[in-house]
Amino acid sequence: MGRESTMKPDYQILAYITTEKERVLSSNCLTLFADSKKTSKEMTVDIAKAMKADVTQLTNGDYMVLRV
């Protein structure tokens, strides 16, 4: 959704779930490694449900849980 030009972006990345170890970097959000695609999907859904957040899947297959 768009926003007014002066409005600060109000989204927050809550978790990043990846299946590639080298993409697990330290950051403000929780970054988790999953050993398979199936596990990463399950982890994402569980976290999103618990945090009442939205999920986006990146082109590389990783998941990002965020609140907009």
């Binding site: 959704m1 999907k41 994402t44 859904v45 999103a48 939205d54 999920v55 986006t56 899947q57 998941y63 990002m64 965020l66 907009v68």
Partner: peptide, 10 residues
């Protein structure tokens, strides 16, 4: 419109 439909449920 959006890419927030990352889960099968959504």
């Amino acid at each position: 419109v959006s890419n927030l439909l990352g889960t099968d449920n959504a």
